Amino acid sequence: MQRVNMIMAESPGLITICLLGYLLSAECTVFLDHENANKILNRPKRYNSGKLEEFVQGNLERECMEEKCSFEEAREVFENTERTTEFWKQYVDGDQCESNPCLNGGSCKDDINSYECWCPFGFEGKNCELDVTCNIKNGRCEQFCKNSADNKVVCSCTEGYRLAENQKSCEPAVPFPCGRVSVSQTSKLTRAETVFPDVDYVNSTEAETILDNITQSTQSFNDFTRVVGGEDAKPGQFPWQVVLNGKVDAFCGGSIVNEKWIVTAAHCVETGVKITVVAGEHNIEETEHTEQKRNVIRIIPHHNYNAAINKYNHDIALLELDEPLVLNSYVTPICIADKEYTNIFLKFGSGYVSGWGRVFHKGRSALVLQYLRVPLVDRATCLRSTKFTIYNNMFCAGFHEGGRDSCQGDSGGPHVTEVEGTSFLTGIISWGEECAMKGKYGIYTKVSRYVNWIKEKTKLT
């Protein structure tokens, strides 16, 4: 034993070699072989497995989906700052455009905790909710729209109204504003409101030439003092309507412009014939205590009207009353817009006519005020429907199939267009061939041609 100890002390290297040989010859039971080890760690190889990531292109799944990435790591994937920024906006807080917040056709661009709407022409605001041009839906104005110097929408209202708090709607500024039905039992019968379409306001006024200088022999019209197929109006439903009495009662109609003036057809009036105007009328054979009678003290036909040349060209006249009318729910003026808007309103496509005229061709006159909704007829169809001249200051309205029309005794009465609950004068009943005849239409004086003249002559002093 002493000898062994001496050998170990003198030859430590020998001992180490012996131990190493023993270990190498022993069977290893701690580690699995290569094949079995792979069965336990069965993990798919990654895209760049075996390579240094710093030297390969980034992978979106590896960089940002398996674990949260930084902007720089995302930049490695896209290799483009702009594309990385677009991805980053949604990656950080989701897609803010998912709810489609942009209105009126706006395009949404996502941002971090926010979004941006790219608005089409005519709109602005956070969600493109603000109209900035009158060309689109009248700028959301209830009545009139004008573009300011910086191309912003400025709404306005006709006389007797003021802008509401929203700067879009119009509200009454006087007790009985024009064009409004205020009798409670008839307010439910107000005709369907007309909503502004998209309009090209630059070209809204037709490029028409008034044929002022045409000389033409007097034409022989049949029954051209021209509501057939209409309905009984309720008291106060058309408070701007008046009836004219002269040699015979209810020979023509008219509309209240203001307390002192009536507008009617020029062919209705004769110099030297006494005319009485009755406002607030409903049943011409009954006294309903809503009527107001006034005498006409002055007749002003349009300066281009000449019955000797043509009885229905420039067929418009103004009547001055001896005493002002007292405005109330049964006696209310009709609204008159400017030339541009009167023309736009007419193009809405349908209007209402009213009167006490004959209820059928050569038949009896109506006792109760009649009204009828009539569609506008395109000019080409209008011209083809008659052998008589249709001037540019006239328009056609009615039904091709016949059966409904204005008729004798309705002449001078109103053709009105309702705009968001307020009625505007767009025409004056003038003439036609018979009444409600198939293929024939009622012919009306186009008020847009005469609004400046009306307003100039009827100013209240």
Rank of each mutant, 00 (worst) to 15 (best):
Q2F: 09
Q2H: 06
V4K: 14
N5R: 08
N5I: 13
N5S: 14
I7E: 11
M8E: 08
A9Y: 10
A9D: 04
E10M: 14
P12R: 11
P12M: 15
G13Q: 10
G13D: 04
I15E: 02
T16S: 05
T16E: 04
C18M: 12
C18W: 05
L19I: 14
L20Q: 02
G21V: 15
Y22Q: 08
Y22I: 14
L24V: 08
A26F: 05
T29W: 06
V30S: 15
V30H: 15
V30Y: 15
V30R: 14
F31Y: 15
A37L: 05
A37Y: 05
K39C: 04
R43T: 14
R46A: 15
K51W: 04
E54F: 06
V56A: 15
V56W: 02
G58C: 07
G58K: 15
N59H: 09
N59S: 08
L60S: 14
L60H: 09
L60R: 06
R62G: 10
M65S: 05
M65H: 14
E67M: 13
K68R: 11
K68C: 04
C69Y: 03
C69E: 03
C69R: 03
F71A: 04
F71K: 08
F71P: 11
F71W: 11
E72R: 12
E73D: 12
E73H: 09
R75H: 15
V77Q: 13
V77N: 15
E79S: 14
T81N: 08
R83C: 06
T84L: 06
E86V: 15
F87N: 14
F87P: 15
W88F: 14
Q90V: 10
D93P: 15
G94C: 04
D95Q: 14
Q96K: 14
E98R: 14
S99T: 14
P101L: 05
S107F: 06
D110C: 05
D111R: 14
N113T: 14
Y115R: 04
C117D: 02
W118C: 14
W118S: 13
W118N: 13
C119N: 02
P120L: 10
F121R: 13
F121A: 10
G125M: 02
G125Y: 02
G125T: 02
C128M: 02
D131T: 13
T133G: 12
T133H: 14
T133P: 15
I136L: 09
N138G: 08
R140Q: 15
C141I: 00
E142M: 09
Q143C: 00
F144N: 00
C145W: 02
S148Q: 14
A149Q: 10
A149H: 10
A149L: 09
D150H: 09
N151I: 07
V153D: 04
V154H: 08
T158Y: 04
E159F: 06
E159M: 07
G160V: 00
Y161I: 01
Y161D: 00
Q167Y: 09
Q167F: 12
Q167M: 10
Q167G: 06
K168Q: 12
K168Y: 14
S169P: 00
E171G: 05
P175T: 09
C178Y: 00
G179I: 01
G179W: 00
V181Y: 07
V181Q: 15
S182W: 09
Q185V: 12
K188E: 10
T190M: 05
T190I: 12
R191T: 08
E193P: 11
E193I: 13
V195M: 13
V195A: 12
F196K: 10
F196M: 08
P197L: 11
N203K: 08
N203P: 07
S204R: 11
A207F: 09
E208T: 13
E208W: 08
E208R: 12
T209I: 11
D212N: 10
N213R: 07
I214T: 14
Q219L: 06
F221V: 07
D223G: 10
F224D: 13
T225S: 10
V227N: 13
E231L: 07
D232W: 13
P235E: 07
P235F: 06
G236I: 05
G236Q: 04
G236F: 04
W240S: 00
W240G: 00
Q241G: 06
Q241K: 05
V242E: 01
L244G: 01
N245Y: 03
N245I: 03
N245T: 04
K247P: 11
D249G: 02
F251Q: 07
F251N: 06
G253F: 07
S255A: 05
I256V: 06
I256A: 00
N258F: 02
N258D: 03
E259D: 06
A265S: 09
A266M: 03
H267W: 02
C268E: 01
E270T: 05
G272Y: 03
G272P: 03
V273G: 02
T276P: 00
V277N: 00
V277H: 00
V278R: 05
A279P: 00
G280T: 01
G280M: 02
E281M: 10
E281G: 10
N283T: 10
I284R: 10
I284N: 07
E286V: 07
E288W: 05
H289F: 11
V296A: 04
V296I: 06
R298V: 01
N306S: 04
N306L: 05
D315I: 00
D315E: 02
A317M: 03
L318P: 01
L319V: 07
L319S: 00
L321T: 02
E323Y: 06
E323R: 04
L325A: 01
L327K: 04
L327F: 14
N328R: 00
S329K: 12
S329Y: 07
P333Y: 00
I334D: 00
C335R: 01
I336Q: 02
I336L: 13
D338K: 06
K339A: 15
K339G: 07
E340W: 14
E340I: 15
T342E: 04
F345Y: 15
L346E: 04
L346N: 04
K347E: 09
K347D: 06
F348E: 13
F348R: 10
S350M: 07
G351C: 03
V353F: 04
V353C: 03
G355L: 07
R358D: 13
H361N: 14
L367T: 14
V368H: 14
Q370P: 03
Y371N: 10
R373P: 11
P375M: 10
V377F: 03
D378M: 04
R379W: 07
R379C: 06
L383T: 14
L383H: 14
R384L: 06
R384M: 12
S385I: 13
T389Q: 12
T389S: 07
I390D: 09
N393H: 14
F395Y: 03
C396G: 01
C396T: 00
G398F: 03
G398V: 04
G398W: 03
G398P: 03
F399T: 13
F399R: 04
G403V: 11
G403H: 14
D405E: 15
C407N: 04
C407E: 03
Q408F: 14
G412A: 14
P414D: 03
T417C: 04
T417F: 02
E418S: 15
E418C: 06
E420F: 15
T422I: 14
T422A: 05
S423R: 13
T426F: 00
G427H: 01
W431R: 08
G432I: 04
G432T: 13
K438S: 13
K438H: 15
G439L: 03
G439V: 03
G439N: 08
K440D: 11
K440H: 12
K440T: 14
Y444A: 03
Y444H: 04
T445H: 06
T445K: 00
T445R: 00
S448F: 02
S448C: 03
Y450V: 00
Y450S: 02
Y450T: 01
N452S: 13
W453G: 01
I454V: 06
K455F: 05
K455S: 06
K457G: 06
K457H: 12
T458L: 03
